[in-house]
Design a protein around this nucleic acid. Structure first.
Length: 229
DNA sequence: GCGACAG
DNA sequence: ATCTTGTCGC
Protein backbone atom coordinates (compact mmCIF):
# COMPACT_ATOMS: atom_id res chain seq x y z
CA UNK A 1 0.00 0.00 0.00
CA UNK A 2 1.35 3.36 -1.00
CA UNK A 3 0.64 5.71 1.87
CA UNK A 4 2.61 8.43 0.16
CA UNK A 5 4.23 9.13 -3.18
CA UNK A 6 8.00 9.52 -3.46
CA UNK A 7 8.71 13.19 -4.21
CA UNK A 8 9.44 13.59 -7.91
CA UNK A 9 11.29 16.47 -9.59
CA UNK A 10 9.17 19.60 -9.17
CA UNK A 11 7.75 20.70 -12.54
CA UNK A 12 8.89 24.14 -13.66
CA UNK A 13 6.23 26.66 -12.48
CA UNK A 14 6.66 28.82 -15.58
CA UNK A 15 6.04 25.81 -17.83
CA UNK A 16 2.95 24.80 -15.89
CA UNK A 17 1.54 28.31 -16.16
CA UNK A 18 2.08 28.24 -19.90
CA UNK A 19 0.37 24.87 -20.25
CA UNK A 20 -2.59 26.08 -18.18
CA UNK A 21 -3.04 29.00 -20.56
CA UNK A 22 -2.95 26.64 -23.53
CA UNK A 23 -5.69 24.56 -21.91
CA UNK A 24 -7.77 27.68 -21.33
CA UNK A 25 -7.38 28.57 -25.01
CA UNK A 26 -8.46 25.09 -26.11
CA UNK A 27 -11.40 25.30 -23.74
CA UNK A 28 -12.80 28.18 -25.78
CA UNK A 29 -13.39 25.79 -28.64
CA UNK A 30 -14.78 22.83 -26.68
CA UNK A 31 -18.45 22.01 -27.03
CA UNK A 32 -20.84 19.65 -25.28
CA UNK A 33 -23.59 18.37 -27.58
CA UNK A 34 -25.26 15.14 -28.67
CA UNK A 35 -23.68 13.19 -31.54
CA UNK A 36 -25.10 14.17 -34.92
CA UNK A 37 -26.09 10.54 -35.51
CA UNK A 38 -25.74 7.07 -34.08
CA UNK A 39 -22.11 6.01 -34.62
CA UNK A 40 -21.23 3.28 -37.13
CA UNK A 41 -17.55 3.30 -36.23
CA UNK A 42 -16.07 3.91 -32.80
CA UNK A 43 -12.36 4.29 -32.10
CA UNK A 44 -10.29 3.59 -29.03
CA UNK A 45 -6.83 4.97 -28.33
CA UNK A 46 -4.14 4.35 -25.77
CA UNK A 47 -0.45 5.04 -25.25
CA UNK A 48 2.32 3.05 -23.59
CA UNK A 49 6.01 3.62 -23.02
CA UNK A 50 8.45 0.91 -24.20
CA UNK A 51 11.24 2.87 -22.50
CA UNK A 52 11.15 6.06 -20.39
CA UNK A 53 12.06 8.10 -23.45
CA UNK A 54 9.82 6.54 -26.10
CA UNK A 55 6.06 6.45 -26.59
CA UNK A 56 3.79 4.31 -28.70
CA UNK A 57 0.20 5.41 -29.33
CA UNK A 58 -2.42 3.08 -30.73
CA UNK A 59 -5.75 3.61 -32.45
CA UNK A 60 -8.26 0.85 -33.04
CA UNK A 61 -11.50 1.26 -34.96
CA UNK A 62 -14.48 -1.00 -34.35
CA UNK A 63 -17.83 -1.27 -36.03
CA UNK A 64 -20.68 -0.14 -33.81
CA UNK A 65 -22.64 -1.70 -32.29
CA UNK A 66 -21.13 -5.05 -33.35
CA UNK A 67 -17.71 -4.06 -31.96
CA UNK A 68 -15.93 -5.94 -34.73
CA UNK A 69 -12.33 -4.73 -35.11
CA UNK A 70 -11.79 -3.16 -38.52
CA UNK A 71 -8.47 -1.34 -38.16
CA UNK A 72 -5.48 -0.88 -35.86
CA UNK A 73 -2.56 1.53 -36.30
CA UNK A 74 0.20 2.96 -34.14
CA UNK A 75 2.76 5.73 -34.02
CA UNK A 76 6.13 5.41 -32.34
CA UNK A 77 7.97 8.49 -31.16
CA UNK A 78 10.11 10.24 -28.59
CA UNK A 79 8.80 11.55 -25.28
CA UNK A 80 9.05 15.32 -24.99
CA UNK A 81 7.30 16.03 -21.71
CA UNK A 82 7.32 14.54 -18.23
CA UNK A 83 4.09 13.30 -16.69
CA UNK A 84 2.50 16.03 -14.61
CA UNK A 85 -0.98 15.39 -13.14
CA UNK A 86 -3.43 17.65 -14.96
CA UNK A 87 -1.19 18.02 -18.01
CA UNK A 88 -1.12 14.49 -19.36
CA UNK A 89 -2.28 15.56 -22.82
CA UNK A 90 0.86 17.56 -23.51
CA UNK A 91 2.88 14.37 -23.03
CA UNK A 92 0.69 12.01 -25.09
CA UNK A 93 -1.46 13.99 -27.52
CA UNK A 94 1.23 14.83 -30.09
CA UNK A 95 1.98 11.16 -30.75
CA UNK A 96 -1.68 10.17 -30.50
CA UNK A 97 -2.46 12.66 -33.27
CA UNK A 98 0.27 11.12 -35.42
CA UNK A 99 -1.39 7.74 -34.96
CA UNK A 100 -4.82 9.15 -35.79
CA UNK A 101 -3.45 10.47 -39.09
CA UNK A 102 -2.58 6.91 -40.12
CA UNK A 103 -6.18 5.67 -39.95
CA UNK A 104 -7.83 4.86 -43.25
CA UNK A 105 -11.25 4.63 -41.61
CA UNK A 106 -12.74 7.78 -40.12
CA UNK A 107 -14.45 6.96 -36.80
CA UNK A 108 -17.65 8.75 -35.79
CA UNK A 109 -16.51 9.06 -32.18
CA UNK A 110 -13.37 8.36 -30.16
CA UNK A 111 -13.23 6.74 -26.71
CA UNK A 112 -10.08 8.01 -25.01
CA UNK A 113 -8.15 6.32 -22.21
CA UNK A 114 -8.26 9.19 -19.70
CA UNK A 115 -10.63 11.96 -18.59
CA UNK A 116 -12.70 14.36 -20.67
CA UNK A 117 -14.02 17.32 -18.66
CA UNK A 118 -13.55 15.52 -15.35
CA UNK A 119 -10.43 17.64 -15.03
CA UNK A 120 -9.40 20.66 -12.90
CA UNK A 121 -9.77 22.96 -15.92
CA UNK A 122 -12.21 20.77 -17.89
CA UNK A 123 -9.46 19.91 -20.34
CA UNK A 124 -8.53 16.28 -19.81
CA UNK A 125 -6.83 14.47 -22.69
CA UNK A 126 -10.15 13.39 -24.24
CA UNK A 127 -11.33 17.01 -24.47
CA UNK A 128 -7.89 18.15 -25.60
CA UNK A 129 -7.75 15.59 -28.43
CA UNK A 130 -11.32 16.30 -29.42
CA UNK A 131 -10.65 19.98 -29.94
CA UNK A 132 -7.32 19.39 -31.68
CA UNK A 133 -8.83 16.85 -34.08
CA UNK A 134 -12.25 18.49 -34.12
CA UNK A 135 -13.72 15.04 -33.50
CA UNK A 136 -16.40 13.82 -31.08
CA UNK A 137 -14.60 12.33 -28.06
CA UNK A 138 -15.27 11.18 -24.52
CA UNK A 139 -13.04 9.84 -21.80
CA UNK A 140 -13.07 6.60 -19.85
CA UNK A 141 -10.55 6.62 -17.01
CA UNK A 142 -9.67 3.95 -14.48
CA UNK A 143 -8.90 6.40 -11.72
CA UNK A 144 -10.21 9.72 -10.47
CA UNK A 145 -8.28 12.91 -11.08
CA UNK A 146 -10.65 15.40 -9.48
CA UNK A 147 -14.18 15.61 -8.13
CA UNK A 148 -16.24 13.83 -5.48
CA UNK A 149 -18.64 10.93 -5.72
CA UNK A 150 -20.55 8.40 -3.72
CA UNK A 151 -19.73 4.74 -4.29
CA UNK A 152 -22.06 3.44 -7.02
CA UNK A 153 -24.00 0.20 -6.50
CA UNK A 154 -21.92 -2.98 -6.71
CA UNK A 155 -23.56 -4.44 -9.80
CA UNK A 156 -22.79 -3.82 -13.46
CA UNK A 157 -24.44 -0.68 -14.79
CA UNK A 158 -24.64 1.12 -11.46
CA UNK A 159 -23.96 4.85 -11.77
CA UNK A 160 -23.05 7.71 -9.50
CA UNK A 161 -22.47 11.38 -10.37
CA UNK A 162 -18.94 12.80 -10.29
CA UNK A 163 -19.19 16.37 -9.07
CA UNK A 164 -16.92 19.35 -8.69
CA UNK A 165 -17.40 20.11 -4.97
CA UNK A 166 -16.35 23.68 -5.61
CA UNK A 167 -19.10 24.48 -8.12
CA UNK A 168 -21.55 21.62 -7.75
CA UNK A 169 -21.27 21.04 -11.48
CA UNK A 170 -21.58 17.52 -12.91
CA UNK A 171 -18.24 16.68 -14.53
CA UNK A 172 -18.68 12.97 -15.14
CA UNK A 173 -20.26 9.71 -14.07
CA UNK A 174 -18.76 6.88 -12.07
CA UNK A 175 -19.74 3.61 -13.72
CA UNK A 176 -19.55 0.06 -12.39
CA UNK A 177 -18.66 -1.69 -15.65
CA UNK A 178 -18.66 -5.18 -14.12
CA UNK A 179 -19.98 -6.68 -10.90
CA UNK A 180 -17.77 -5.85 -7.96
CA UNK A 181 -14.80 -4.28 -9.70
CA UNK A 182 -13.54 -0.74 -9.22
CA UNK A 183 -15.70 1.68 -11.22
CA UNK A 184 -14.70 3.65 -14.30
CA UNK A 185 -14.91 7.44 -14.71
CA UNK A 186 -16.79 8.53 -17.82
CA UNK A 187 -16.95 12.11 -19.04
CA UNK A 188 -17.59 13.94 -22.31
CA UNK A 189 -14.64 15.32 -24.24
CA UNK A 190 -15.67 17.39 -27.26
CA UNK A 191 -18.85 17.39 -29.38
CA UNK A 192 -20.35 14.77 -27.04
CA UNK A 193 -22.54 14.92 -23.94
CA UNK A 194 -22.58 12.93 -20.71
CA UNK A 195 -25.57 10.78 -21.61
CA UNK A 196 -23.97 9.75 -24.88
CA UNK A 197 -20.60 9.04 -23.30
CA UNK A 198 -22.15 6.81 -20.67
CA UNK A 199 -24.52 5.11 -23.10
CA UNK A 200 -21.72 4.28 -25.56
CA UNK A 201 -19.47 3.02 -22.80
CA UNK A 202 -22.21 0.65 -21.63
CA UNK A 203 -22.83 -0.46 -25.21
CA UNK A 204 -19.14 -1.36 -25.54
CA UNK A 205 -18.97 -3.63 -22.50
CA UNK A 206 -18.41 -7.30 -23.26
CA UNK A 207 -17.97 -8.91 -19.88
CA UNK A 208 -14.71 -7.19 -19.02
CA UNK A 209 -14.08 -4.21 -16.79
CA UNK A 210 -12.84 -2.19 -19.76
CA UNK A 211 -15.05 -1.34 -22.75
CA UNK A 212 -13.83 -2.90 -26.03
CA UNK A 213 -12.31 0.17 -27.68
CA UNK A 214 -9.90 0.84 -24.81
CA UNK A 215 -9.43 -2.81 -24.00
CA UNK A 216 -8.35 -3.59 -27.56
CA UNK A 217 -6.24 -0.45 -27.82
CA UNK A 218 -4.54 -1.58 -24.61
CA UNK A 219 -4.03 -5.05 -26.02
CA UNK A 220 -2.53 -3.89 -29.31
CA UNK A 221 -0.32 -1.41 -27.54
CA UNK A 222 1.32 -4.37 -25.84
CA UNK A 223 1.66 -6.25 -29.13
CA UNK A 224 3.10 -3.31 -31.04
CA UNK A 225 5.46 -2.64 -28.19
CA UNK A 226 7.18 -5.98 -28.94
CA UNK A 227 7.71 -4.89 -32.55
CA UNK A 228 9.52 -1.69 -31.70
CA UNK A 229 11.78 -3.25 -29.11
C1' DG B 1 -0.01 23.59 6.39
C1' DC B 2 -2.16 19.05 4.76
C1' DG B 3 -3.96 16.01 1.19
C1' DA B 4 -4.74 14.77 -3.84
C1' DC B 5 -2.63 13.64 -7.91
C1' DA B 6 -5.62 10.61 -15.33
C1' DG B 7 -1.48 7.91 -17.72
C1' DA C 1 2.63 4.51 -17.38
C1' DT C 2 6.25 0.80 -15.61
C1' DC C 3 8.64 -2.67 -12.51
C1' DT C 4 6.91 -7.89 -10.88
C1' DT C 5 4.94 -13.41 -7.76
C1' DG C 6 2.05 -15.15 -5.56
C1' DT C 7 -2.53 -15.03 -3.94
C1' DC C 8 -7.45 -14.00 -2.63
C1' DG C 9 -12.29 -14.32 -4.06
C1' DC C 10 -16.09 -15.71 -7.02
Amino acid sequence: MAYFRPPGPAPDPALVRSLSQQQLALLQNRRTEPLAAEPRLIAGCDSSFPTPETIISVFVVLKFPSLELVEKVYSYGLVTMPYVPGYLSFREAPNVIQAFAKLTHRPDVIMVDGHGIAHPRRMGIAAHLGVMLDMPTFGVAKNKLTGTFAEPGLTKGALAPLTDPKTGELIGEVLRSKDKVLPLFVSPGHRCDQATATRLTLACLRGYKLPEPTRLADHWAEEFKKEVR
